[in-house]
């Protein structure tokens, strides 16, 4: 870039940090001496700031279900979890060994009689 050239499109690149260190030094030196380029710099700075001030827009909900309904918040997750719990519970109940109760400990009546008589010293 010669001393008489104006900066032109380098101004936007300079604002955006898209110039090399050497270019940046040259640009600053030129701006110090060139009122026209300082004016151009102000213009593109204003336009750049105006566009950058535009807000990001929220997309319609139907477009981004993952945003509106994160995976962990979907209705079927707790339902599916409840179903799994019920299935596991039923499976455990059906699959476990039959509980042992006192009713299950059966001793033949004749044996009981023999034990009682033995304890009392009575011969059968």
């Amino acid at each position: 870039m010669s001393a008489t050239d104006h900066l032109g499109e380098l101004l936007s690149a300079y604002l955006d940090g898209e110039v090399t260190t050497d270019e940046s030094v040259t640009i600053r030196g030129h701006l110090a001496d060139c009122e026209s380029c300082r004016g151009d710099l102000g213009d593109v700075m204003e336009a750049r700031a105006a566009v950058r001030a535009l807000p990001l827009l929220e997309p319609p909900a139907f477009l981004l279900p993952a945003v509106e309904q994160p995976a962990v918040g979907r209705w079927y997750v707790p339902v599916a979890a409840a179903v799994v719990v019920v299935v596991l519970a039923v499976g455990l109940l059906l699959g476990r060994p039959t509980p042992v109760t006192t009713d299950d400990v059966t001793v033949p009546h004749t044996e009981l009689t023999a034990r009682a008589q033995a304890m009392n010293g009575v011969q059968p």
Binding site: S12, V44, R48, V51
Partner: peptide, 16 residues
């Protein structure tokens, strides 16, 4: 890209 961004901004400034 550099040229188009700069020219685009210059036109925006004129419009605004």
């Amino acid at each position: 890209v550099r040229s188009r961004i700069h020219r685009g901004r210059a036109r925006l400034r004129e419009r605004l």
